[in-house]
Design a protein around this nucleic acid. Structure first.
Lengths: 196, 196
DNA sequence: ATGATTTCCTGCCATTTGGCAAGCAGACGC
DNA sequence: GCGTCTGCTTGCCAAATGGCAGGAAATCAT
C-alpha cells in the first residue's frame, strides 16, 4: 500500500521536506482495523501514533452512569492517538474505535521518541500536531459556550459531513453535547427548513 | 524577588533536577502586572512564556456580538501563555488580563526555543506542560457535556475558590457556559441549600 | 428468510436556562 | 461628599433541552 498520504501529511506543516518525509514515513508500519475494532481500549496505554489513511474513527469515554460520550471523531488524513495516555504512559480513560473499516500507518511511543531525538524537524512537526489539536479543542469549547446546539450541528454538517454518514445519531449527539432525542429534533427541523 | 516557586515548578514533573532548574530559572526575567493590565491583547502575538508567582489572570475572547467569553482562569503556580499564538507566531484571538496585581517570571519565544535546543530535559518539560494543558481542557469539555451548570459551579468552588473571590460573576458565568443571570440563581440556590 | 436487536423519530410534559428589566448596594472618580 | 457606574440579584415569562415511552424502519445474526 502507498505511503503517499502519509508523506504528504508530514510535509503539510512546511517543516519537513520531501526527502526527509519519505525517510520518516518508512519507519511507520501498516495497520488495518475492521469496523468496530478498537485502536485503544480504556485502561490500556495508548502506544500507537496512528496516521489514518482511510476510514473514520471515534473516541469516547464512559461516564459513571455508563453512558458513553463521544469526545472526538477522526476523519482520514490525520494522526490519531490519546495525547495524555500516549505521552504520560498512563492508562487511557478513553476508547478509540473504528466506525468504518480503516487503514493507516503507525509507530510506537519508543519509535516516536527515537525519531524526535534524531530529527529535530520531526520534533517540531510533532509539536505542531499537538498545538493544532489544542487549538481545535479550544475552538470547539468556545462553540459549545457561544452557539446553540442547532448551530453546532450545522457547523459539523458543513465541515465533516462524512461523520454524519457513518456515525449513529446518538454518538453525534453526545459529541455535540445534547441528547439523541434533541439531535433528532434538530435534524427534523433542519430538514423541514430546507424543504419548505 | 525569589525564584523559589519557579524552580520548584520546573522540578515538579520529575524531569528536571534542582541544579538544572536553577540554571533554567536564571534565564527568566521578572514581570509585574497591575490589576486590569494585559499580559496579551487580541491581535498581538503571544511572546511571553510567563510563570505566575502570585496573582490571578483571566483569558477571554470576544464573540462577534461583542460579549466577552472567559476561556480560562490562571491561578498562581503555572505558566501562562496562549499556546496557539505563541507557537505558531500568529496573532492571538484571545486576551489575557490580570484580575489582581500579579508578579512572575517570563522568557520570550526565542529564549524558550534556545533553551529547548540546549536542554532536552526542558524540552520534555515543555511538552509535559502542553500535554497537561490539553488533558485539563479535555476534562473541562467532558464536564461541560456530562454535568449540569450547578455541578460545574460547585466543582469550580471546590477546586479554585480563589477565582470566585476575585472574578466578577459574569466572568465566571461565561467560563462555566451559562449567563450571569443563571449563575446568580445557582449561587442563590447553593447558599440556600447550605443554610437550611 | 426470520426473529431479534438497534436505530431513529415523535408526542407529551418537566426541567433547565435565557432574556429583559427593575432595584439595590458597593466601588470609583472628582 | 456626591453623583455615577458597575456588579449582583430577582421576578416574570419565553425558549431550549431533557426524560420517557411508543412505534416504525433499518440492521444484524443465525
Amino acid at each position: 500500500m502507498s505511503q503517499e498520504k502519509l508523506t504528504q501529511f508530514l510535509q503539510s506543516r512546511g517543516i519537513i521536506g520531501a526527502v526527509q518525509a519519505a525517510e520518516i514515513a518508512s519507519q511507520f508500519s501498516p495497520k488495518a482495523l475492521a469496523r468496530h475494532d478498537f485502536l485503544l481500549r480504556e485502561g490500556r496505554v495508548s502506544d500507537a501514533y496512528f496516521f489514518l489513511d482511510h476510514g473514520l474513527l471515534r473516541a469516547f469515554a464512559c461516564d459513571p452512569a455508563g453512558h458513553d460520550v463521544t469526545t472526538a471523531f477522526y476523519p482520514a488524513g490525520q494522526v490519531v492517538f490519546e495525547v495524555s495516555s500516549f505521552f504520560t504512559r498512563a492508562p487511557s480513560q478513553e476508547n478509540i474505535q473504528a466506525l468504518t473499516d480503516c487503514t493507516g500507518w503507525f509507530i510506537t511511543f519508543q519509535q516516536l521518541n527515537a525519531l524526535f531525538h534524531a530529527r529535530p524537524e520531526f520534533r517540531e512537526f510533532g509539536r505542531s500536531v499537538l498545538v493544532h489539536g489544542f487549538a481545535t479543542l479550544k475552538s470547539r469549547m468556545l462553540a459549545m459556550i457561544t452557539t446553540s446546539a442547532t448551530e453546532r450541528y450545522e457547523q459539523l454538517l458543513k465541515t465533516a459531513p462524512e461523520v454524519l454518514r457513518h456515525a449513529p445519531v446518538k454518538h453525534v449527539a453526545s459529541y455535540l453535547g445534547v441528547t439523541d432525542t434533541s439531535l433528532s429534533r434538530i435534524r427534523a427541523g433542519a430538514k423541514a427548513a430546507g424543504t419548505e
